[in-house]
C-alpha cells in the first residue's frame, strides 16, 4: 500500500506541471494585465510603465514563467502583484476557510443524506419517502446562489435565526459553527440529495439480495439487518459522491463564498484572475489541483479499505 501511495504521488508531479503550464498559457492569452489594473482607468502611460517594470511584466513571458517555477521548486510561491503579500500566506488563510466549509458541508450532506436515504428505503413509497425524494430533487436542481439567497432572506432577514456572514475561520467554536451553518447547508444540499438517492437505491437493491433475506429469515431485527449488512455496501457509492463533490468544492465554492462573504480560496482565485495577479492565480490553482488529486487518492484508498475485493493497481 505504501508503494501504491508513493506511485500515485509521483503521478501527481506531471499533473501539477501540466496545470501550471495551462495556467500560464491562460494568463498569456487573456487580454489585460496587472499593471493596468493597479494603475486604474485614469492612469498616464508613465504610471503604467513604471508599474509594469516593477512587476517584471516587461520581460518575455517564458522568462516570467521559468523565474516563477524556479521559485516554486524552492518552495517560494512568490508575491501577489496586487497587494505584495506572500502568496503562500494569502492562500493559507483562505484554504482553512474553504476546507472548513467543504468538510462541514460534506458532514451535513452525509448525515442528512444517509439518514433520509435509510428512512426512505425502509419506508419505500410512503409519504416520507416521497417527501425526501422531492426535497432532494429540489436540492439537485436549483442553482446554489439561488438557494443561498433564499436562505439568507428567510433565515437571516425574515426570521433572524442565523447570521448572514462573518465566518471567523474557526469551525470548532460555537460562533464559527453558527456562521458556517447556512453556507454549508447551501453547499451540502445538492450532494445530500445525491447521497440520499444513492443510499436509498443501494439499500433497496441489497434488501432483495439473498443474504439479507437469509439474515432476515434467521430472525435478526430488521433495523440491524439494514444497517449492518446493507449500509456497508452502500458506502462505496457514498464515498465516491463525497469525494467528487469535495474535490469540486474546493475550486467551485466561489459562488457560496461570495453569497455568504466567506474569505475562501474560490473567491481568491476569481479575484486574482480579475486582477491578472499571476503569482496568486498560479499559487491558488496549484493548491486546488493538489488537493483534488490527494482527495482522489484518499477515496481510492478508502475503497480498498472498505471492500477487500478492490485492489490497488
Amino acid at each position: 500500500m505504501v508503494k501504491y501511495i508513493f506511485k500515485r504521488l509521483i503521478q501527481l508531479i506531471p499533473v501539477l506541471i501540466g496545470v501550471s503550464i495551462a495556467v500560464f498559457l491562460m494568463i498569456y492569452l487573456i487580454p489585460g494585465n496587472a499593471a493596468e489594473i493597479i494603475a486604474g482607468p485614469t492612469a498616464t502611460k508613465e504610471e503604467i510603465q513604471n508599474i509594469t517594470v516593477k512587476l517584471g511584466l516587461d520581460k518575455p513571458a517564458y522568462i516570467q514563467y521559468l523565474k516563477y517555477m524556479s521559485g516554486v521548486l524552492k518552495g517560494d510561491l512568490g508575491y501577489s502583484f496586487q497587494t505584495g503579500q506572500a502568496v503562500s500566506k494569502a492562500i493559507a488563510v483562505r484554504y482553512v476557510n474553504t476546507l472548513s466549509l467543504a468538510i462541514f458541508s460534506a458532514l451535513i450532506s452525509i448525515i442528512l443524506g444517509v439518514t433520509t436515504g435509510i428512512i426512505a428505503a425502509a419506508k419505500r413509497n410512503s409519504w416520507f419517502d416521497r417527501l425526501c425524494m422531492g426535497i432532494s430533487t429540489f436540492g439537485i436542481s436549483a442553482p446554489s446562489f439561488w438557494i443561498g439567497l433564499l436562505l439568507i432572506v428567510v433565515f437571516g432577514v425574515k426570521l433572524k435565526l442565523l447570521p448572514i456572514s462573518g465566518f471567523n475561520g474557526k469551525i470548532w467554536t460555537a460562533d464559527g459553527f453558527i456562521h458556517l451553518l447556512m453556507p454549508a447547508i447551501t453547499l451540502g444540499f445538492g450532494s445530500s440529495a445525491m447521497i440520499s438517492r444513492m443510499t436509498r437505491s443501494s439499500l433497496l437493491e441489497i434488501i432483495h439480495q439473498d443474504y439479507i433475506q437469509t439474515a432476515r429469515a434467521k430472525g435478526v431485527k430488521e433495523k440491524i439487518v439494514i444497517l449492518k449488512h446493507a449500509l456497508k455496501n452502500a458506502l462505496i457509492p457514498i464515498i465516491t459522491i463525497v469525494g467528487i463533490n469535495f474535490g469540486g468544492l474546493l475550486g467551485g465554492a466561489v459562488v457560496v463564498e461570495s453569497v455568504f462573504a466567506i474569505n475562501g480560496i474560490g473567491r481568491l482565485m476569481v479575484q486574482a484572475i480579475s486582477a491578472r495577479d499571476f503569482p496568486m492565480i498560479q499559487g491558488s490553482v496549484l493548491m486546488v489541483a493538489f488537493t483534488f488529486v490527494i482527495i482522489n487518492l484518499i477515496v481510492d484508498i478508502l475503497y480498498a479499505a472498505i471492500d477487500p475485493r478492490i485492489q490497488y493497481n
Binding site: V15, G18, V19, G248, G251, G266, A289
Partner: peptide
C-alpha cells in the same frame, strides 16, 4: 494524464479564462 489535468483544473477558472 490530460484528463487528470482537466479534472484538477478548477472549472470556474477555466470558464473565466
Amino acid at each position: 494524464r490530460i484528463i487528470d489535468i482537466l479534472l484538477a483544473f478548477p472549472g470556474v477558472l477555466l470558464a473565466l479564462a
